[in-house]
């Protein structure tokens, strides 16, 4: 059954998980405003544990905005206001008693443009552990840095130049450094906003492999403009359109047998 543009208020597919045990993050009736403008409308969705969820949709539809609600990075934008309920492990993250700083230590983020600090590779990865006091001494810190770099698949490439500036690496290496930096504080969730959009196909393939690897330990949400990437790395896919969450389902279903006409048009490239 193909539906029209007008009745997408209710998300179709399987936005809510049947198995309550698997829910890591749940969002209910989330609205986001920039000043007067509503950028996200009544979005309700569950994110499953240890699985990759992909957010797709045309530019400007609110994917990044919604992603940034989950680690409360929207708090840093003065005009931005979030309504509704978002829970992490069944605790409301917008509760008064929740410290966004601690929350962000549990929910890491990788940005579209690689943004290593203008410090050495070592210092880049050691930054988070230092702030949160995760290492009691230098050798523990070394250990954390090395395992993070290993998990990010970068260690073998940079092991002799840990004291070189992180900004001197190639774009793909920088992005993996940012991933290492994000996982160094052992978050439970990693949010990735178009992590490969500035990279070439080889670096992209490496990062995709890495995401598949990281899925075992982390819950991952990835925003992407590449259908192939969403199909390759994710287990569930959510399609956004003009601030609405149109359709959520298993990635397979979305790509093989989408229900909504907008979804169909978008993934077959007829959107526009």
């Amino acid at each position: 059954m193909v539906r029209s543009r007008d009745d997408i208020v209710r998300t179709i597919g399987k936005p809510l998980l049947a198995d309550d045990e698997r829910v890591k993050i749940s969002c209910r009736n989330v609205n986001v405003y920039y000043g007067e403008k509503r950028a996200i409308r009544e979005v309700s969705v569950d994110i499953a544990e240890q699985e990759v969820t992909a957010f797709i949709g045309p530019s400007g539809c609110g994917k990044s905005t919604f992603l940034r609600c989950i680690n409360r990075m929207n708090d840093t934008i003065k005009s931005c206001r979030v309504e509704g309920e978002i829970t992490l492990d069944r605790e409301d993250i917008y509760d008064r008693n929740v410290d966004p700083v601690l929350l962000r230590a549990r929910i890491g983020m990788v940005f579209q443009k690689p943004n290593p600090f203008p410090k050495s590779i070592f210092e880049n990865v050691a930054y988070g552990p230092r702030i949160h006091g995760l290492a009691r001494n230098k050798s523990e810190l070394d250990e954390i840095v090395i395992t993070s770099l290993e998990k990010a698949g970068l260690f073998s490439e940079v092991k002799d130049q840990l004291d070189h500036p992180g900004t001197g690496l190639s774009g793909g290496q920088q992005q993996r450094l940012c991933i290492a930096r994000a996982i160094s504080v052992q978050p439970e969730v990693i949010l990735m906003d178009e992590p490969c959009s500035a990279l070439d196909p080889i670096a992209t393939a490496k990062i995709e492999e890495l995401i598949d690897e990281l899925r075992r330990n982390f819950t991952i949400i990835i925003v992407t403009h590449s259908m192939q990437q969403a199909a390759r790395v994710s287990q569930r896919t959510a399609f956004f359109h003009l601030g609405n969450l149109v359709e959520v389902d298993d990635t397979n279903t979305i790509f093989v047998n989408p229900e909504h006409k907008l979804t169909q048009d978008y993934i077959t490239g007829r959107y526009g």
Partner: peptide, 12 residues
């Protein structure tokens, strides 16, 4: 971006 990076790791 540098500020965002730092904040997103949970720095104050």
């Amino acid at each position: 971006e540098l500020r965002d990076a730092s904040l997103s790791i949970g720095a104050t």
